[in-house]
């Protein structure tokens, strides 16, 4: 490298700057410039290499340790690395705890945290037969969704509830039903997971959303 640089020292050299400057009208700024010095060839202090090696080591260990699995799954690190599978399974939630969890995650956006819904759009879950009555009908609303106009305690609603059957398991459907039937002032029986399973067996082939009239005809007659 030093040699390469030296070939050019002549061109970097300003010593031939001469008296004829005025002829070429060289201006002040160009004249007063120092030549660009040829680069040094030092190899650098030892601690620089220590820093480089340490950084390399840290980088590789970090990448290796937190790599996770090489797939499309988002953001699994915190689950797989901080708690083992076994630990997660050991935590057995009661039906009410699981139900409260699901309700907060899935249902409360529309039906509100207090279960009272929104007038005209999202039906209340308080003191209504849809919740406290026929268990299969309630499961059907959650699993396949519901649309159409209905009236509860003098208030009418015209909403469109999506089907949740694909997103939440039977166990979770039973849990959230139990939670709703025992919250917001409701006080009805727990829902065993078997009730949800028997609904799935009967209506397993169904893909359409329930319409209010059709729903009531199917379950109440």
């Amino acid at each position: 490298m030093a040699k390469k640089g030296r070939e050019n020292t002549e061109e970097f050299d300003d010593s031939r700057q001469n008296e004829q400057d005025d002829i070429y009208d060289i201006h002040q700024a160009a004249l007063r410039e120092r030549p660009l010095p040829e680069e040094g060839t030092e190899i650098g202090p030892w601690w620089l290499y220590a820093i480089i090696l340490t950084t390399f080591a840290f980088g590789f260990f970090y990448a290796g340790f937190y790599f996770g699995e090489f797939n499309y799954q988002p953001h699994q690190l915190y689950l797989t690395q901080t708690e083992s599978e076994a630990e997660i399974e050991q935590v057995e939630l009661t039906q009410m705890e699981l139900g409260e969890n699901i309700y907060g995650r899935v249902c409360s956006t529309c039906h509100q945290a207090n279960g009272e819904g929104v007038e005209g759009a999202f039906p209340t879950l308080v003191d209504t037969d849809y919740v406290n009555g026929n268990v299969s009908r309630f499961a059907g609303i959650i699993i396949h969704g519901l649309y159409g106009e209905l009236e509860i305690n003098g208030v009418s609603y015209n909403g469109n509830m999506p089907a949740w059957g694909e997103q939440i398991s039977d166990k979770e459907v039973a849990a959230v039903m139990t939670y709703v039937r025992n919250s917001f002032g409701n006080n009805s029986s727990d829902v065993p997971i078997d009730s949800v399973k028997s609904y799935r067996e009967t209506f397993g082939d169904r893909t359409a959303q329930w319409e209010v009239g059709e729903l009531n005809d199917t379950f109440l007659n």
Binding site: M1, G5, E33, R34, L36, P37, E38, E39, G40, T41, E42, I43, G44, L48
Partner: peptide, 12 residues
Amino acid sequence: KVTGRPIYSYSL
């Protein structure tokens, strides 16, 4: 250019 000092090391 301004200081007149060469860059410490080309390899770096």
